[in-house]
Design a protein around this nucleic acid. Structure first.
Length: 505
RNA sequence: GGCCCGUUCGUCUAGGGGUUAGGACGCGUCCCUUUCACGGACGAAACACGGGUUCGAUUCCCGUACGGGCUACCA
């Protein structure tokens, strides 16, 4: 029987979940759903020094907003492998057990070196022009560990409660070969791999040990993570091997990184592209900075997810706008790119625009009404719906609606200079005054009637410029369909605006 | 520095031993439009370089360059 597909997203609560992390979660989620599997949220809080209050809650809220919901794990209901927080699992002695097993089999050892001694060692190696200073098969022979210390001193140290770490005993010169679903076969010589710390002196496991133990115990079938983990994958292979669990090892998938839009390097939380790096607003208590979120910037979660999915993956056909369901149906790791993808703010906006247009005017009104209210604007629902209909084709975000259509709510104080300079002349005032008189007598005030009246009026008055009429009533050169806009404004407001404008000119 | 990973239009990408190298974003032109847009049409724009292999390489191999990642008792 095939094993049930199970993937996990395993962030550390060391800060706000940024969009790179969201994408990792998304790909895992899509794959799990495609194969009818489970998606688990595990919190990897083994570093107490970097723990950030509120980060875990933020991760949970972000996943919810994005619609990437685990069906098991912290914040989403415990499953059969609880607890899902590594700090809690540590309390149960889960990791120690595996570390002890590695010691017993001779594949790990105790090391008593202080951080000063480690620094010293690195300095010494650097001074000796050693190419890659690290704690390894060669250098450990000169360090304070259970491989070098005499038996009696060793027992004395341990009995005396001396702090120690447990390190993986990496062999000297061995080819380590592993398969990555995205990258294919990767080979590394073990001489390049250092003796990774598995258990820290505070008793906490490091990521290297913890994620392996948990992936095994939680029956994870596919381990998805960023490319930055590729260099430590050989260590992980060795741990699985020495634990005798190589046959249960999840398949590996290292995702390409998301790169900065301009310049080089991976995307950081301080990017200046003008778009958020976080799904939701995030206040970082450590740098005391507020980071704006996609949600608060007016993005729709499905648009955000769609954009993220296409960053490093594509369905192999010329299709870009895909619902979550379609993403699930089409997703595969084979179609994930190997190279890093630069994040494109322009295209990201375009995605949201596409989703914005798929919304009905009623749906948009729902979202826009509170935004208008916060500006002190009170209009009835019908007005706002019509406002949305007229403005949506120009907008990328709902929170642009007011700015793009402020002239619906505020009479013009100034007139677009370019248009006036080009089109306003001596006869204009007189002509528009005559137009007002014609419009005043209209029994009905809708776009169609206005259009006809405007056309008809010109046989008497002469050629009227439509853009001038626009500027006279809104102040600006561009905007919504003119007659629709006047219709929505209403007869009284429209004519008042026209009269007031003419008085000023 | 060392190790690992990568390299198709400015960006996201499709493709793959013989193609007019396709799409999307952005950009430009035109059409529609007495306004503003949407929309439509068109256009500019790419296989990093050098060697092989081959009748033929952008595609396969090797180098070089460039980019990225890692190089902690952080994840």
């Amino acid at each position: 029987m095939e094993k049930k597909v199970r993937l996990r997203f395993a962030p550390s609560p060391t800060g706000g979940l940024h969009m790179g992390g969201v994408r990792t979660a998304l790909f895992s989620y899509l794959f799990a759903k495609k194969h009818g599997g489970d998606f688990v949220l595990r919190i990897e809080d083994t570093d107490q020094t970097r723990y950030v209050e509120g980060a875990e809650d933020y991760i949970i809220r972000s996943l919810k907003w994005c619609g990437i919901e685990p069906n098991e794990g912290v914040g989403f209901g415990d499953g059969p492998y609880a607890p899902y927080r590594q700090s809690e699992r540590k309390e149960q002695g889960i990791y120690k057990k595996y570390a002890d097993q590695l010691i017993a089999s001779g594949n790990a050892y105790h090391a008593f070196d202080t951080s000063e001694e480690l620094d010293e060692m690195r300095k010494r190696l650097e001074a000796a022009k050693v190419i890659a200073p690290q704690y390894n098969a060669v250098t450990r022979q000169n360090m304070k560990n259970s491989l070098t210390l005499p038996e009696d001193e060793l027992t004395k140290l341990i009995a005396g409660g001396a702090p120690y770490v447990i390190r993986l005993k990496v062999p000297r010169n061995e080819e380590i070969r592993f398969h990555d679903i995205i990258r294919g076969w990767v080979t590394v010589n073990s001489s390049q791999v250092d003796d990774k710390v598995l258990l820290k002196s505070d008793g906490m496991p490091t990521y290297h040990l913890a994620h392996i133990v948990d992936d095994i115990e939680m029956k994870i079938t596919h381990a998805v993570r960023g490319e930055e983990w590729l260099p430590s994958a050989p260590s992980h292979i060795l741990i699985y091997r020495y634990l005798g669990l190589e046959d249960q090892m999840p398949q590996l998938a290292h995702l390409p990184l998301i790169l900065k839009p301009d310049g080089n390097g991976k995307l950081s939380k301080r990017d200046k592209s003008g778009l958020p790096m976080f799904p939701l607003n995030w206040h970082d208590p450590r740098d005391k900075t507020d980071y704006i979120g996609y949600k608060e910037s007016g993005f729709m979660p499905d648009a955000f997810i769609n954009m993220l999915a296409l960053l490093g993956w594509n369905p192999g056909e010329n299709r870009e706008i895909m619902s979550k369901q379609e993403l699930i149906e089409n997703f595969s790791f084979e179609r994930v790119n190997k190279s890093g993808a630069k994040f494109d703010p322009e295209k990201t906006k375009w995605f949201n625009q596409q989703y914005l247009r798929m919304q009905t005017d009623e749906q948009l009104a729902e979202a826009v009404a509170p935004l208008l209210e916060s500006k002190g604007i009170k209009k009835d629902r019908a007005f706002i719906i019509e406002f949305c209909r007229l403005i949506k084709e120009k907008a990328h975000f709902v929170n642009e609606f007011y700015e793009l259509g402020s002239y619906f709510f505020v009479a013009p104080a100034m007139f677009d200079e370019k248009v006036m300079a080009k089109k306003w002349n001596d006869t204009s005032k007189d002509m528009f005054t005559k137009l007002i008189a014609k419009l005043e007598s209209l029994p009905v005030w809708d776009a169609h009637t206005l259009h006809d009246a405007f056309q008809a009026a010109q046989t008497d008055i002469g050629k009227l410029d439509m853009q001038l009429l626009r500027v006279l009533t809104t102040g600006v050169a561009g905007g919504a369909q003119l007659f629709d806009l006047l219709a929505l404004l209403g007869k009284e407001e429209s004519l008042n605006r026209l009269k007031n404008s003419l008085e000023k000119l």
